[in-house]
Write a protein that binds this DNA or RNA. Structure first.
Length: 599
RNA sequence: GCCCCUGUAGCUCAAUGGAUAGAGCACCUGCCUUCUAAGCAGAUGGUUGUGGGUUCGAAUCCCGCCAGGGGCGCCA
């Protein structure tokens, strides 16, 4: 927020260095640690190191301090800077508190929901996430994926990028066919009531079918024959799907719709609005076409005449001598396509039809190799956007008893966890806030329960695995979503009890350190948005939001607002509370967490 | 065999190559007749897996090793 002042100071430092023949290194600016005062700082270690490397006999830390002291003298006075300190090689510039506090608060309350929004950028980003296979229910692993993707989409969008949200559900494959087969064989015509019940029922059928089709120990010849007969039936159904058999296709579309209804309902609950739906089955035909193109361009090698498949020797084609991307198949020997082929076809659609400059894939880290191969082939193919394809991988979510497995029916469903979350919040709520009406309580419980779940997923670095513990995920104390929501509620509570928000205010009194820290954190929000977007890391926003809430809670406790006698001070603090509330709301929104008015 | 990820307080996790490695949970001490105690203030807790190296400066970068997880041509 203070680029102008920073520019003025930076040019003064450069001028001083130029005059004194000091080879200045790039200046990096950061907030001054050890809170209580407020400002920005830079250091001269890099500059001193340049001198040392140039042959000067100096001690870097001592020389950095020397330059800092000289720079301090050279800077003189700057509008808006109350004091300059040179310490341990750092140059600390303290802001004139009143003026800056007013600027920050005024800007927030002028921009409101747009506070922190970045200037529009020329590039278009597509974020692909929320892509469970159909015919399965949505589990907590999908929840991590969806929350991560949605938070990222909200962050890059708010940072100024033209953003498209895309989902790419796997709607075909042997797993899907297995469910169709078992449904048709054993449950034909049945259909449970309720969107989620029906979806979960399909999942149960899948686990049953898998058990029937798996070889068992000590199986009798009769059992073996039955199992093998089932397997033949299943593959026959896949063949029929492939040749567009009307019966199988209709069955497939009907059951697929059941899954999609369930998925759409969960996305509605999570407030995720997809712009584009790509289905795996849609790219099958185009995928076949691009194989020919890649062969013609000499990128792929057709080994089918020798009884092999169509492959891409990626390392060789890129001219790499060391093994990196290896070789992968883009078409089976029987002429059918693979996941990789479909991803190539999909990327082509993204680039050519949707004019995407950057393509982000929020996909399980286990598919890292696959995506690196896809990006490398896209590059060979001539797509310059391949450079800006990015795999946001994330560690998988497992259970204390081991990995989740849809095949074994050992999954923790998101819907179940959500229901449990709401139940627990309601229990806490009726104890702590008996005044809230029955109707509102249910709504607030959903906001808090979902907030706790979302934050537990976002507050861990994406490349770390999560062992899902429901008691941890639904903890409402400390470093959690509800802690942040509570800060928002408390701010709201103060504002509700005031006689309205003053139009303007002066911060011309001695501010409490808690006030200064809160204002400082608010002022950093726009930069944090850009940083999180640049690095594709929702975690940065999650951490920031917690810090902001923490500063507000401390402020709340230490600094009276409504009870302040002095009218000037009270009005300034009221506006500060409103600015804090707004910034918390904006930050929570980027995390796809709702801000309840009461709790 | 090769490649990727992870290893930080008892537990779960933070920390643009820079100032004193920080939070939460758990445990302990205080704080509700005062704007919501889902909170605040404080105490305890560290050889950042390990051994080298680079650097004025390393949890962070490089190399070796140890431990755990994942991946590696006709699954997705």
């Amino acid at each position: 927020m203070f680029e102008d002042e920073q520019q003025i100071i930076e040019s003064k430092i450069r001028e001083f260095c130029l005059k004194n023949d000091i080879p200045i290194a790039e200046l990096k600016w950061s907030p001054i640690p050890f809170s209580g005062e407020w400002g920005t700082s830079t250091s001269f270690f890099a500059t001193a190191a340049l001198e040392a490397r140039a042959g000067k006999k100096i001690q870097v830390p001592a020389r950095a301090q020397e330059i800092a002291e000289q720079a301090k003298a050279a800077i003189g006075s700057v509008q808006g800077i109350s004091r300059v300190d040179a310490i341990k090689g750092y140059l600390n510039l303290y802001f004139s508190t009143s003026e800056y506090a007013r600027r920050v608060v005024d800007e927030v309350l002028a921009s409101n929901a747009d506070f922190g929004r970045g200037a529009p950028k020329s590039e278009r980003i597509m974020v692909e996430y929320a892509q469970p296979n159909t015919h399965h229910s949505f589990h907590i692993g999908h929840h991590r994926n969806t929350i991560l993707g949605e938070a990222l989409a909200r962050i890059v969008e708010f940072a100024g990028f033209d953003t498209i949200r895309a989902s790419y559900p796997g709607d075909i494959g042997l797993g899907v066919i297995t469910i169709l087969w078992a449904y048709d064989r054993f449950y034909k015509g049945q259909e449970p009531q309720g969107i989620h019940e029906r979806g979960q029922w399909l999942l149960k059928i899948y686990a049953e079918a898998t058990a029937m089709l798996e070889p068992k120990e000590n199986e009798t010849p009769e059992e073996k024959a039955k199992r093998e007969a089932y397997d033949v039936e299943r593959h026959e159904m896949y063949r029929k799907w492939d040749i567009n058999d009307p019966y199988v296709r209709e069955l497939w579309l009907k059951t697929r719709e059941w899954s999609l209804e369930e998925l759409r309902d969960i996305l509605r609950i999570l407030d995720v609005k997809m712009d584009v739906w790509f289905f795996e089955s849609d790219v099958d035909v185009p995928a076949k076409e691009i194989v020919g193109e890649l062969i013609a361009k000499g990128i792929a090698d057709d080994e089918r005449p020798q009884g092999g498949a169509v492959i891409v020797k990626i390392d060789e084609k890129l001219g790499l001598t060391k093994e990196k991307y290896r070789t992968n198949i883009i078409m089976r020997s029987d002429g059918t396509t693979l996941y990789l082929t479909k991803d190539l076809a999909l990327a082509k659609v993204k680039f050519e039809q949707y004019h995407v400059d950057r393509s982000i894939y929020v996909v399980d880290v286990r598919q890292s190799m696959h995506l690196q191969q896809a990006f490398a082939i896209l590059k060979l193919w001539g797509f310059k956007q391949a450079e800006k394809c990015y795999h946001l991988g994330y560690g998988f979510v497992s259970l204390p008893e081991g990995a989740m497995s849809a095949r074994r029916g050992r999954v923790v469903l998101f819907k179940d966890v959500m229901d449990e979350a709401i139940k627990r919040v309601l229990a806490v709520e009726s104890e702590k806030s008996p005044d809230i009406s029955e109707e509102e309580r249910r709504h607030v419980a959903e906001q808090i329960g979902l907030g706790a779940l979302a934050y537990s997923m976002l507050s861990v670095d994406n490349n770390k695995d999560i062992i899902f513990d429901i008691n941890e995920a639904l903890n409402f104390d400390g470093h959690t979503g509800p802690y942040i929501q509570n800060a928002y509620v408390r701010a709201n509570s103060i504002l509700k009890k005031s006689d309205g928000l003053p139009k303007e205010s002066q911060f011309d009194y001695e501010l409490d350190p808690h006030e200064i820290e809160l204002i400082e954190l608010i002022s950093r929000f726009p930069d944090k948005v850009q940083q999180a977007a640049d690095e594709y890391r929702p975690l940065i926003m999650a951490n920031y939001t917690y810090d902001l809430a923490n500063a507000f809670h401390s402020f709340y406790h230490a600094v009276p607002v409504i009870q302040t006698e002095d009218k000037n001070v009270r009005e300034a603090r009221l506006r500060l509370v409103a600015a804090a509330k707004q910034t918390i709301a904006n930050a929570l929104r980027l995390l796809d967490i709702q801000a309840p008015e009461v709790m």
